[in-house]
């Protein structure tokens, strides 16, 4: 029990890169009750995400992509179908699959450090020393070491999302689920974060499912882009983005991909406008 330097080796262990998960969504359907009757948000959606793959789900708002993300996270239950993570069915939320939300869901009663520490404290078999060390590492990774003791309301929108990212990364999940995490940020901050997230993804090897309505963003970040069509939510088309990384959101090659996806997105919108609900 009293091995010398035990806590040190344990924090190092905790920081080790662990193999990312593969995800498989199999025929997931989900409907909601609304004033105008039952709305089918997801209609037998199936998709596979390989270990360490970066997949973007793109679609207009209300197409069910966030619902799908919540189901993968285990925060919502599918009416039918299943989600498998490494072959095992997902039955509820768990720290193997952490979520980064659109609005920073940081806890205002804790400071920056306390927020990053939150998930770590729920991880057993770590000393508090280890936890602090790990939290420091991730704050450094997102470039916010200097703001350890800042209150949440003192941070800018971009900084808040960096803290959210550090908080999601800290318990070392195998999957990162991101729900339009940059939608509320200004363009300049966003571009910075595109660079950061690619670097971190490369460094920490996570499987990432990234929901967005921004086609360019999807083309910039994803290995694959899945296009959702609404009413009912379905995967309409799939694009592979084979550009070298790190990618620059303003590059011409990327624009070509984005244009192609946008065209498909628009035709989906038209089809919906013609077809009665």
């Amino acid at each position: 029990m009293l091995r010398a330097g035990r806590h040190h080796s344990s924090a190092t262990e905790e920081l080790q890169i662990i193999p990312p998960s593969k995800l498989s969504v199999e025929g997931v359907s989900k409907s909601f009750r609304s004033a105008s009757g039952n709305v089918l948000a997801l209609d037998r959606v199936s998709l596979k995400v390989a270990e360490g793959e970066f997949v973007c789900l793109v679609g207009t708002s209300g197409c069910g992509k966030t619902t799908l993300l919540n189901i993968i996270a285990g925060l919502e239950k599918a009416d039918s179908g299943a989600v498998l993570a490494d072959g095992k069915p997902v039955t509820g939320p768990g720290r193997e699959r952490l979520v980064m939300f659109q609005e920073p869901a940081l806890f205002p009663w804790l400071d920056v450090f306390g927020n990053v520490l939150f998930g770590l404290k729920l991880k057993p078999n770590l000393t508090n020393e280890d936890r602090r060390e790990v939290a420091k590492y991730y704050l450094e990774l997102v470039g916010l070491s200097r703001f350890e003791h800042a209150n949440i309301h003192e941070l800018s929108g971009g900084m808040k999302q960096r803290v959210s990212l550090a908080r999601a990364l800290a318990p070392n999940p195998r999957v990162l689920l991101m729900d339009e995490p940059f939608a509320a940020l200004d363009a300049l901050t966003r571009e910075q974060l595109y660079g950061d997230i690619q670097e971190i993804w490369k460094a920490r090897r996570k499987t990432i499912v990234f929901v967005t309505h921004n086609v360019r963003e999807a083309a910039c970040l994803g290995d694959r882009v899945l296009l959702f069509s609404p009413h009912p939510g379905r995967i309409q088309e799939e694009f592979t983005v084979n550009l070298p990384r790190p990618r620059d959101i303003n590059s011409v090659d990327l624009a070509a991909h984005a244009t192609q996806i946008t065209k498909a997105l628009k035709s989906a919108g038209k089809a919906e406008a013609i077809a009665p609900k």
Binding site: A73, G74, L75, P93, G94, R95, R97, L98, V99, F101, E103, A105, F107, F118, G119, L122, K123, R167, P171
Partner: peptide, 11 residues
């Protein structure tokens, strides 16, 4: 959203 965030972290 606080609940949901905490749930995913195992609370």
């Amino acid at each position: 959203i606080y609940r949901r965030a905490a749930l995913t972290m195992g609370s």
